[in-house]
């Protein structure tokens, strides 16, 4: 029992963080009035070269052979600089393709030759050998794959299988949004949750991204209140400000600790896995929303301005909250804490 990363895991997290800080800092999104999927796609070959898409995949699937623990550290850093959630889509698609007898597709996804996009259901949907429902596709790429998941499993599709794909202005300008519907479409690959607990995996990696968002927003707020002077002293010396900062630290400790437990529980029995991952999604998105909002508040007038990056975290936090379903979608999994049984 040791929830802290070992030396090798720390090294992985550090190298991911260093790359993203240099190549894709959150502030890059400030230059955009509207989302530019192509700008994010420019980073795709770099991610592939670093082995991110296949980090947790077994070597026989063309992966690096690490596990969910290393991936949780990766997605936490991805969240921190608001890098694309589609990295997760590519990773899921590569595993689904590899496991369903399409090793070439899997290889192309891992190599970054094909992109993948998240298709998030906007309501009830049916996923399986036939797929139906309405979805929001992030940074849709006509040549790439589209990945949809719910509690039943993960489906890989093509954009042209969606009826009437319509671009819609996106709350989170870091991703473009297209809405499309599936009517009894046959996915190019499908894996049920019984075959592989990929929906739970996806949920916990979204939670890890939310932890990254929360920690980055809290760090930004903390830097600012140490720097900003009013009444002749840093505003971080005032108790009202301190307590906001303590609340952020508290929420983030809960979020990351639970996300680690959920990550490690992916190998446990179904009830435990479902409970722990739903709890992680819950507390991590709470933390992300709290820290993002407090970061705006603590930046004052500046925090409300488009030129300040504070609003980016607010919007990404809300995007991650919706991915795979928000709190109401998963609360039935939370009705029994296996530890008390």
């Amino acid at each position: 029992m040791d929830l802290l990363p070992d030396a090798e895991q720390e090294q992985i997290a550090d190298s991911v963080a260093a790359f993203l800080r240099a190549q894709a800092p959150a502030a890059r999104l400030l230059e955009r009035d509207r989302p530019h999927a192509s700008a994010e796609r420019g980073l795709w070959p770099r991610y592939a070269a670093l082995g991110w898409f296949g980090m947790g995949l077994a070597e026989d699937l063309g992966g690096v052979g690490y596990g969910p623990a290393e991936e949780a550290l990766l997605y936490r850093e991805i969240g921190r600089t608001l890098a694309s959630p589609n990295i997760l889509a590519a990773r899921l698609a590569a595993e689904v393709a590899g496991r369903t007898g399409q090793p070439d597709v899997g290889q192309s996804l891992l190599a970054g030759d094909i992109t993948a996009a998240v298709a998030n259901p906007t309501g009830r949907c049916r996923l399986g050998p036939r797929c139906s429902g309405r979805f929001q596709v992030l940074d849709a790429d006509p040549d790439g794959r589209v990945v949809a998941w719910n509690d039943d499993g993960v489906a890989v599709l093509q954009l042209n299988q969606f009826k009437i794909v319509r671009s819609i202005p996106s709350l989170d300008a870091g991703v473009s949004l297209a809405v499309g519907e599936l009517e009894d479409a046959t996915p190019s690959a499908w894996i049920s949750a019984q075959e592989a607990p990929l929906p739970a995996f996806a949920m916990v990696m979204v939670a890890a991204m939310a932890c990254g968002v929360a920690e980055a927003a809290a760090a930004s707020a903390l830097d600012y209140v140490k720097f900003r002077q009013q009444f002749g002293r840093p505003i971080g010396s005032f108790q009202a400000i301190k307590h906001h900062c303590a609340n952020m630290a508290l929420a983030n400790e809960a979020a990351w600790a639970q996300t680690v437990m959920a990550t490690l529980s992916l190998d446990d029995d179904t009830a435990t896995r479902n409970f722990e991952t739903a709890a992680a999604k819950f507390v991590s998105t709470e933390a992300a929303n709290l820290c993002a909002a407090l970061n705006v508040q603590l930046h004052g007038g500046l925090g409300y301005a488009a030129e300040c990056d504070a609003h980016l975290y607010v919007k990404r936090a809300r995007l991650l909250e919706q991915l795979g379903g928000a709190r109401r979608a998963h609360r039935d999994k939370l009705m029994s804490f296996p530890m008390t049984a």
Binding site: M261, E276, A279, F282, L334
Partner: peptide, 13 residues
């Protein structure tokens, strides 16, 4: 549901 998520998070903390 929220309380159960939070007691789990406390255990993890």
């Amino acid at each position: 549901a929220q309380l159960n998520a939070e007691v789990a998070a406390l255990r993890s903390m």
